[in-house]
C-alpha cells in the first residue's frame, strides 16, 4: 500500500505542480494573463505587440511590410525613402498566409494602404507548416474568417499545455525574465533592433519535406490580392533571401528542388509578378556581412533587397518571375 500511496502522491503532486506552473506562466499566452508581470513570454507575443501598435498607431501608415522573422529587418525608414510612403513593419515570427490575410483586414479597418509588401519563406505555403499557435491566441485571429474550432477553445486541459514542450517553455520564460533579456524588442513602426554582426553563418534547420501546396492558404492569398484590387493598394511579393549554403541544400535535392519550383509558381499564379531572391545570384552575399543566419538577412542586406525592388539602380541579384 505504501508503494501505491507514494506513487500516487508523487504523481499527483508533481503533475499538479508542473501543470499549475504552466497555467500560471501561460507561456503561449493562451489565457491572456501575465500573473508574474513578465516582460516577455517564451514565444514572444509579437503579434499582440504589433497588433496594438497598428491599432493605436499615431501615424497615417500607407505601406506595410509583412513576413515571418526573416522580414524583421526591413527598415521602415528605408522603404519610406524609396517609396515616399509611411510604412510599418508588421512581420512576426512564424507568420503564414493566415497572418497576412488577417493583418490586411485589420489594416483596412484603420488605414488606407497604398502598398503591402510580403516576404515569403519556402515553408509558408506547405501543408506541413502549421499556422503558429500564437496567431490563434492573438487578436489577429478575429480577422481570419475561418478559425478552427479547436483553436477557439481555451480550457484547463488544453492539449498544447499538456506537453513536455510547455514545461520547457515555462521554465524558459522564468529564466529569461530573471536572468536574460528579451531578444525581440520592437521599435516604433514595428522596426527591429539592430543587432551585432553574427560570428558565423549557420545554416538554420529547415523542414520542407512532403511539400504540398496548402490550397486554403492559396485562397487567403487570392483574397488578399482581391482586397488590393478593391481597396486600391499594390501587393508586392518576394521570396525571402536564403544563404547560398541553405539554397544549395534545396536545389541539389531533386525532390526539394521540384517543391521549391512549385512554391515559386504558386506565388506567381496568384500575384502575377514575384521578386525572387532565392536563386544562386545570392552567391556574392553569402556571408555574415549580409545574413544573421542562413534564412535571416540582416538590416544591411534587407535594405539592399528593398533597393533592388524599389530603387533606381538595381544590382540584379533579384530575379523577376512573371506569368
Amino acid at each position: 500500500m505504501r508503494f501505491i500511496l507514494a506513487f500516487a502522491l508523487t504523481a499527483t503532486f508533481l503533475a499538479s505542480a508542473l501543470y499549475g506552473l504552466i497555467l500560471a506562466v501561460d507561456p503561449y499566452n493562451k489565457f491572456g494573463h501575465n500573473l508574474f508581470g513578465f516582460e516577455t513570454k517564451a514565444v514572444d507575443f509579437a503579434r499582440e505587440n504589433k497588433f496594438n501598435q497598428v491599432e493605436h498607431g499615431k501615424k497615417d501608415y500607407t505601406a506595410f511590410i509583412m513576413g515571418s522573422s526573416s522580414a524583421h529587418r526591413y527598415m521602415t525608414k528605408e522603404l519610406n525613402r524609396l517609396t515616399g510612403l509611411v510604412s510599418y513593419n508588421y512581420s512576426t515570427q512564424s507568420a503564414t498566409p493566415e497572418d497576412y490575410i488577417a493583418m490586411t483586414r485589420h489594416i483596412l479597418t484603420k488605414y488606407k494602404p497604398k502598398l503591402i509588401l510580403i516576404s515569403f519563406g519556402f515553408e509558408e505555403l506547405s501543408t506541413q507548416t502549421k499556422a503558429d499557435d500564437m496567431f490563434f491566441s492573438s487578436p489577429l485571429k478575429n480577422y481570419l474568417e475561418e478559425v478552427p474550432a479547436e483553436e477557439l477553445e481555451t480550457n484547463l486541459f488544453n492539449n498544447s499545455y499538456l506537453t513536455l514542450e510547455a514545461i520547457a517553455d515555462s521554465f524558459k520564460v522564468i529564466w529569461v525574465n530573471l536572468f536574460g533579456k528579451a531578444l525581440h524588442a520592437y521599435l516604433e513602426d514595428g522596426d527591429h533592433i539592430v543587432e551585432k554582426r553574427a560570428k558565423k553563418l549557420k545554416v538554420s534547420q529547415f523542414g520542407y519535406a512532403n511539400f504540398e501546396i496548402d490550397q486554403k492558404r492559396m485562397g487567403y492569398l487570392k483574397t488578399l490580392k482581391e482586397l488590393g484590387t478593391t481597396h486600391g493598394f499594390n501587393v508586392v511579393v518576394f521570396t525571402s533571401p536564403l544563404s547560398l549554403e541553405h539554397l544549395n541544400k534545396i536545389i541539389n535535392d531533386p525532390v526539394l528542388n521540384a517543391s521549391h519550383q512549385k512554391f515559386k509558381s504558386a506565388l506567381v499564379d496568384v500575384f502575377g509578378v514575384v521578386w525572387d531572391f532565392q536563386t544562386p545570384a545570392i552567391a556574392p552575399y553569402n556571408s555574415t556581412e549580409y545574413f544573421m543566419d542562413s534564412n535571416h538577412p540582416n538590416h544591411h542586406f534587407s535594405t539592399m533587397v528593398l533597393e533592388e525592388m524599389f530603387g533606381a539602380n538595381r544590382i540584379g541579384f533579384g530575379k523577376i518571375l512573371k506569368k
Binding site: I4, T10, L14, T163, A166
Partner: peptide, 22 residues
C-alpha cells in the same frame, strides 16, 4: 521490492510520460 524510493521514481517518470503522451 515495493519501496518508497522506487515508487517516487515511478511517479516522476509517469508524470513526464503523461506530458509526453500528447
Amino acid at each position: 521490492k515495493p519501496d518508497t524510493r522506487i515508487a517516487i521514481y515511478c511517479g516522476i517518470a509517469f508524470v513526464f510520460c503523461l506530458f509526453g503522451m500528447n
